[in-house]
C-alpha cells in the first residue's frame, strides 16, 4: 500500500513548546465517503423492486450515440413494456425532445455544472412524474466516462457504450467505468470498416478490464435484437451496478 501525506501543511503549533501543543488522538471511523449517495441509491433500488420496475442506466463519452441508441430501444420496447426514460445533460432539453419521439414518457435532468448524475437527482426527478404502470426505466447519464463510475443510481443494469470512431483502446483508457458496467455496447458498427476498427482488439480490451462483460454490437440502423437481449438479462435477474 502506498500512503501519501498529500496535504502536509506545517502545523501552526510547531513553534509552540510541546506541553502547550494540543494532544492528538487517532480515532477509527469507518465510513464510505459517498454514504449519502449510496443510502439514497439503496432506497431507490428497494422502491423500484417493490414496484416491479427494472432500471437500466447508460454511460458513455459525449457523442457515442447513447440517445440514438436509446430512442430505438424505447420505440421497440414499447411494444412489450411500459417504458420511461430519464436523461441527464449539463444544459438543454434537446435529448428529452429527441427521446419523446418514441412516445414514451421522458424527463430531462439538467445538471448545470455537475458532470454526472447522482442518486438524489434521480429521486427528485421521478417524484410525482414516474407513471405507475412503468416496468422498464432507462436512465441516460451525462456524457462522461470518468465521473459517473463512482455514483450508484439504484439501477439493476449499467450499460457502457463506446463507438468505433473512439478507438479500440477506450476500455484501457477508462477501465473503471467498464469494470463497474454489466454490459458493453459498441455503437456505429456501420462505420467500422471506414475507420479501420479492430473488433477483436476491442473485445480483448473490454474483457481485459471487465472480465466476463456481455458485449453487444449496434449501428444506428441495426441492432434490433439488442432490446430482447437486455430484457433477457433483466429477466435473469441482471447483474446490478456495483
Amino acid at each position: 500500500m502506498n500512503t501519501t501525506d498529500l496535504a502536509a501543511k506545517s502545523e501552526a503549533g510547531s513553534q509552540v513548546p510541546s506541553h502547550l501543543r494540543p494532544q492528538t488522538r487517532l480515532v477509527e471511523v469507518r465510513q464510505n465517503i459517498l454514504k449519502q449517495n449510496d443510502t439514497v441509491a439503496r432506497e431507490l433500488r428497494r422502491r423500484f423492486h417493490e414496484a416491479g420496475i427494472f432500471v437500466v442506466s447508460l454511460v458513455s463519452s459525449p457523442g457515442t450515440g447513447k440517445t440514438a441508441f436509446l430512442e430505438r430501444v424505447l420505440t421497440q420496447s414499447r411494444q412489450q413494456h411500459n417504458v420511461a426514460a430519464l436523461v441527464g445533460d449539463l444544459a438543454t432539453d434537446n435529448d428529452a425532445q429527441r427521446l419523446a419521439r418514441s412516445c414514451a414518457p421522458v424527463k430531462q435532468i439538467i445538471t448545470g455544472t455537475v458532470c454526472h448524475l447522482e442518486a438524489e437527482m434521480v429521486k427528485n426527478a421521478i417524484e410525482g412524474w414516474l407513471p405507475k404502470d412503468v416496468d422498464l426505466l432507462f436512465i441516460e447519464n451525462v456524457g462522461n466516462l470518468v465521473c459517473p463510475s463512482s455514483y450508484d443510481l439504484g439501477e439493476d443494469l449499467r450499460l457502457v457504450l463506446m463507438s468505433v470512431t473512439e478507438g479500440e483502446d477506450k476500455p484501457l483508457k477508462y477501465p473503471t467505468i467498464f469494470n463497474t458496467a454489466d454490459v458493453a455496447i459498441i455503437t456505429k458498427m456501420d462505420l467500422a470498416e471506414a475507420v479501420e476498427f479492430n473488433l477483436e482488439a476491442a473485445h480483448r480490451n473490454i474483457q481485459g478490464v471487465g472480465g466476463g462483460l456481455v458485449v453487444g454490437l449496434v449501428s444506428a440502423w441495426g441492432g434490433g435484437g439488442l432490446v430482447v437481449g437486455v430484457w433477457g438479462l433483466a429477466s435473469g435477474g441482471g447483474g446490478g451496478a456495483h
Binding site: 494540543p22 494532544q23 492528538t24 488522538r25 487517532l26 480515532v27 477509527e28 471511523v29 469507518r30 465510513q31 464510505n32 465517503i33 459517498l34 463512482s150 469494470n179 474483457q207 481485459g208 471487465g210 472480465g211 466476463g212 462483460l213 456495483h242
Partner: peptide
C-alpha cells in the same frame, strides 16, 4: 490467468480514521 470481474478490494472510497486535537 483467469479473467474475472469479481473484485475483492479496490473500490474503496472511505474514511478509516481521524486525528482529533484534545
Amino acid at each position: 490467468g483467469t479473467a474475472t470481474a469479481d473484485v475483492a478490494s479496490g473500490r474503496e472510497l472511505e474514511v478509516f480514521a481521524m486525528e482529533i486535537d484534545e
